[in-house]
């Protein structure tokens, strides 16, 4: 999927996360993760985010994640939603989400 506009998903509430995506200025994919549990889980969050993006076929853009201690399933869900919104996707390929 191609991110064509700025989009947002999620919240800053505990156990949730806010994901912002934008087309980005460069050509590649930039992921910036910030988390309340950065030291213990920063690497894992980054991995889940990148894995989710890869399954969606996102190869370019800026993805900023503000994590509040969310479970992996919530991280995946918020990244997927932000990408769908940013790609202006009208239909969902559910197989890319599971």
């Amino acid at each position: 999927m191609k991110i064509v506009k700025e989009a947002l998903a999620g919240t800053l509430e505990s156990s949730d996360l806010l994901v912002k995506v934008s087309p980005g200025s460069g050509t590649g994919l930039e992921v910036v993760v910030s988390s309340e549990v950065m030291q213990q889980f920063g690497h894992q969050i980054d991995h889940v985010v990148r894995d989710t993006l890869a399954r969606l076929g996102v190869t370019a853009g800026l993805v900023v994640v503000e994590d509040k201690g969310a479970l992996d399933c919530a991280i995946r869900a918020r990244v997927q939603t932000a990408v769908m919104r940013g790609a202006e996707a009208q239909t969902i390929d559910w197989s890319a989400l599971s």
Partner: peptide, 11 residues
């Protein structure tokens, strides 16, 4: 509506 659907799908 869209985010809840995807969140429930993942949960």
């Amino acid at each position: 509506k869209d985010s809840a659907r995807i969140l429930v799908f993942n949960a």
